[in-house]
Amino acid sequence: MPFEAVVQLHGPAILRVCLALLPRQDAEDAWSETFLSALGAYPDLPIDANVQAWLVTIAKHKAIDRHRTAARAPELAADPPDSAVAPADPLEHADLRAAVRSLPAAQREAVAFHYLADLPYADVAAITGSTEAASRRAAADGMRTLRRRFPGGSD
């Protein structure tokens, strides 16, 4: 498959994952780094590889790199008022995304990889180094919090 088709097919899901893990500007940078790095390694990818799981794994590592960078230079972690590429989220989406980012890491990743990137729990577990059952539980716990935090919803 030409890489253009890979970006076409998986680009939206990987952006959803990045936006769940990072503030918008960092998320866009992580998306770019993910696909640039995937492009370089693409010729060596086995023909039967699960491309979506492969890309999510790369995105997860790029997000961790960005978190580390942000920890060293806190001002980089701040969401700039205007993104260079995209318009700002509608407010309720920005709040909800912030709610995803404030989930404990296991819940955040389980929600992002299962609900936003459509990976089965077996793949989520493999990527997060957890078990299928624990991933399922983490995703359910995360979704419960997000339902409560949804604008208009209440406890």
Partner: peptide
């Protein structure tokens, strides 16, 4: 009343076509 999974996911899954296009140009 708490929201449903569908409400939460439809907000988190709303893709921005213009943002994706700009990212693809930048990737190239």
């Amino acid at each position: 009343m708490a929201a449903t999974d569908e409400q939460v996911l439809s907000a988190l899954r709303s893709d921005d076509a213009a943002e994706l296009l700009a990212l693809r140009l930048r990737l190239a």
